[in-house]
Amino acid sequence: MFVDQTSLLLALGLAAFAISATLLITWLAARTEKFILVWAVGSCVLATAFAGFSINAVSNHYALLWISNLLLSGSFVILFSAACLFTGQDLPRTRIAVISALCAAVISMPFVLGFDALGAIMGNLVNALLLGGTAWTFWRGRAEAPLWVGGIAVLYSLTAISFIPCAIMIFLKDPLILDAPPSGWAEDLNSIAGLVGLTGIGALSLALNQARIARRHHEEANTDPLTGLMNRRAIFDRFGASQMDENTAALLFDLDHFKSINDRYGHAAGDEVLRRFAQVVSQNMPLGSSAARIGGEEFLLVVTDTDDAEALLIAEAIRSTFACEILQGAGGGFRATVSVGVSTGMGSQDTFDHVLRRADDALYGAKNSGRNRAASTAQGEGGPR
């Protein structure tokens, strides 16, 4: 051995325990990401397994080796579950239970029969498969952050591979009975790979989670919580300083008689009207467009690569689709309508505020003309047919 095996195992146990404590504190601070809690539990079980292996390295206790192998594989099953949650997958509870039972059976059967070497071999192979599956889970979910998540997958893969020489060396020495705790260059390499992998995976995962939290806070600050559309701040940040050329249009929507809907059918029905209208806008707006709720019952849609005629057609499609929706309120089913004002840019010197002001003028004209219609500053009005 070129390093002390017991010291490496103790270092692994301490690292796993430190990561578990850090993850638990992180989860307790927010209690939003379930994978952090699952990962903390897995790391705690991992630390316990390493503690068992380090004691067994000096005591050579048959049952302790058996239990430590079960704990190690169990921790990797938990880490696989955390990987599923981390990458946004539903936790496959049935599959996890089956995998856990199979791993326990494959490792325990040789120990029950008195073949501790074979049990250790099976434990190493099971661990390689579990870590390989975890690596594959992260690799499939790398689209979120290819470099970081890909790095996590690589570290899991390298750690998985390091278990294979351990199994091979035990097999070559005696495939059935151990005369001493497994110890040699393969175990040292496995411990070093585990230590590097554990700390690297911990650092990358925590950094990625912090980036997720920051991104979520940014999204929440720029999203209307009721409709899921952009809020006023977000759309004005995006277009407020922009020059609006002839191919960009602003469509300003205002729900007709919205206060009366709240008074007659209740505020819950009013919220449903807002949500349903947001869905209609999302379903009918062209790709690359930006939709926002900018006031109580006011919505704004900014469409690029369009002209006056096409923008009016889009407004009319949204208006007519929404007019056909049957909504539910305290007094039963009802319909709601919307008026639309449309304006396009007038050149490189035209500002977003100017276009929005003209769209508001067109909206005012649509309201005064009977509501439930679309009006454009350039082409007049469209209405119910």
Rank of each mutant, 00 (worst) to 15 (best):
R31F: 00
T94R: 14
E381W: 04
G333W: 00
T344R: 12
L37E: 01
S348V: 13
A167V: 13
S20P: 08
I152K: 02
A145E: 03
P92D: 02
L198Y: 02
A145M: 08
E310A: 12
V98A: 10
N262F: 07
A135F: 11
D174K: 04
L301G: 11
K173G: 10
S183R: 08
A82M: 12
P92Y: 01
G74F: 01
A378K: 13
A16S: 13
R95F: 03
K173T: 11
G295N: 06
L195Q: 09
A362C: 06
H218I: 07
L24W: 13
A120S: 13
L70K: 08
A375H: 12
Q283N: 11
V41M: 14
F253R: 08
E316L: 02
S290Y: 07
A211H: 06
S339T: 02
C84E: 15
P384N: 12
M230G: 04
R233A: 13
G331R: 10
G345R: 09
W185E: 13
G347C: 09
D116W: 12
L189W: 03
V280N: 03
R233Y: 06
A291V: 06
Q279M: 03
F80D: 03
P92R: 00
A269T: 11
V280L: 09
F111L: 01
A120R: 04
I192S: 11
A291G: 05
S54Y: 11
V273Q: 11
H257G: 13
A128M: 07
L178D: 02
F111A: 10
G329P: 10
L46E: 14
F35Y: 14
I294D: 00
L23F: 15
L252D: 07
A193I: 12
G270Y: 05
A207K: 14
L198C: 13
S157W: 10
V3M: 07
V355Y: 02
R275A: 14
V342C: 07
W39Y: 05
